[in-house]
Amino acid sequence: MLSLPFQTFMVFIPIDSPRNPQFDSPEQYISNVRNLYINVTDQSTSREVSIGVWLILPENYSGTGSIQEIIRTSSRDILIYLHGVYANRAKPIKQYEVFRRHFLVLAVDHRGYGDSGQGADMTEIGIVEDHLQIYEWVRGLNPTADIYYWGHSLGTGLSTHTLRRLKDDKNVVVKGLILESPFTSLEDVINNIVFEQIFGWLAYFNSTLLRPLRKNGLEFRSLDHIGLIDSPVLILHAKDDGVVPFKLGQQLANIAIENRNPEQGSVTFYWFGEELGYNHNDIVTYPQIHNIIENFTAICRAYNTAKFLPI
C-alpha cells in the first residue's frame, strides 16, 4: 500500500527473460536483426532516457546501410511491437519470425526492461510518453509508411493508451492495432486471478491493494481507450490463457464493438480453443496466423481508402 517501487515491480515484473540477454548480438537469437537505441525525454524529470529497440528485417534481407536509412527507404508497412511482463526484446523470437513476413518490425523494450530507460521511474504514463516519442522518431524517418501496433499482454494496455494519446494529443491515427491476450483493466485482471480469490474477501483488499494502484496511475484501462481509437482493431485470445483470463479479452472485444461507431474502423475477434494449447504466448504458432494477419491488413487498407475517398 505504501511502497510505490513494490507496486510497480509487482505490476511490471521487469525480470529479464531470457536471462543475461545479449542485445548487441541479436544474431545469437535470430538472423537479420539490428540493435539500436532511441533517445527520448522523460517528461517528469526532463532527463534523456535511452530506449533499446531491435529492428527485425525480412529473413532474406541482404542490403546494407544504416538503420535510419533502412527505415527511411523501406516500402514495407512498419510494425511497432510492445511486449508484456517478464520479458525483454530477446524473448519473443517466434513472434518475430511471423511478423517479419508481413512488416518491417521495431520491437521496443519499455523503460525498466532489458537495457532500456535505466534509472527512469516505471509508470504507465511515463512508458506511454516514451512510446509517443518513439512513434514520432519512426514517423520522422518515414513520413509515408503505414504503421501498425501489436501489443501482447501488458503491451496491449500500453498500446491502446499510446494510440489514444496519439489521437487526442496529435490527431494521429495509425493504420491498425493488434491486441494479443488483452485485458480490460489492471483492476479487472487482479479481480480475476487466484490472488483475488484467496484474499478478495478481506475487508481491506480494495483499500490496501486496488486503491493504491489507482492513486498511482497504474490502471491500464483499455476498456476506456479502445473506444477512442480510430483504427481497425484485431483481438486474439486463447481460451486456455493461464495469465490473462480469456473472458477479459472477450469483454474488451464486446466493449469495442458496442462503443465504437463504424467510422472508427472494424473490430475483429479471433479466439482459440483450449485443445490447441496456445495458452498465453503461443497464438502466433496457429497454422493460419499469416492468413489472419493478411486479412486484417487488407481490412485496414480498405478502411483507410474508404475513409479518404473524395465526397
Rank of each mutant, 00 (worst) to 15 (best):
Ile257Asn: 11
Ser231Gln: 06
Leu186Trp: 13
Thr285Tyr: 05
Asp230Lys: 09
Leu228Pro: 00
Asn88Ile: 12
Thr73Phe: 04
Gln133His: 02
Ala306Leu: 06
Arg19Met: 03
Arg34Leu: 03
Gln43Leu: 06
Thr41Arg: 01
Leu228Ser: 08
Tyr286Val: 07
Ile80Arg: 06
Gln133Leu: 00
His110Arg: 10
Gly119Trp: 12
Asp168Met: 01
Leu179Gly: 09
Gly242Ser: 10
Ala203Asp: 15
Asp188Tyr: 02
Leu248Gly: 03
Asn88Glu: 14
Asp282Pro: 04
Tyr270Thr: 06
Val172Phe: 00
Pro26Asp: 09
Ile147Thr: 03
Ile125Glu: 12
Leu4Asp: 11
Ser3Glu: 08
Ala306Asn: 14
Leu202Trp: 15
Val53Gly: 10
Ser159Phe: 12
Leu186Lys: 09
Asp77Ile: 00
Trp54His: 05
Pro143Cys: 07
Arg260Thr: 08
Ile134Tyr: 10
His290Thr: 09
Asp188Arg: 08
Val267Ser: 12
Asp168Phe: 01
Trp271Thr: 12
Ile229Val: 09
Pro143Gln: 13
His237Leu: 05
Val284Arg: 01
Ile134Arg: 05
Ile193Ala: 02
Ile193Phe: 02
Ser153His: 14
Val138Glu: 02
Arg34Asp: 02
Gly126Tyr: 03
Pro212Glu: 12
Leu55Thr: 05
Pro262Asn: 07
Arg100Thr: 08
Asn281Met: 02
Ser31Val: 01
Asn32Leu: 04
Ile190Phe: 05
Ile51Thr: 11
Ala90Val: 03
Thr268Lys: 08
Arg47Thr: 03
Glu69Lys: 02
Thr162Val: 15
Ile229Glu: 13
Gln22His: 15
Gly277Glu: 06
Arg301Met: 02
Pro21Asp: 14
Asp146Gln: 04
Arg47Ile: 03
Tyr270His: 15
Val189Met: 04
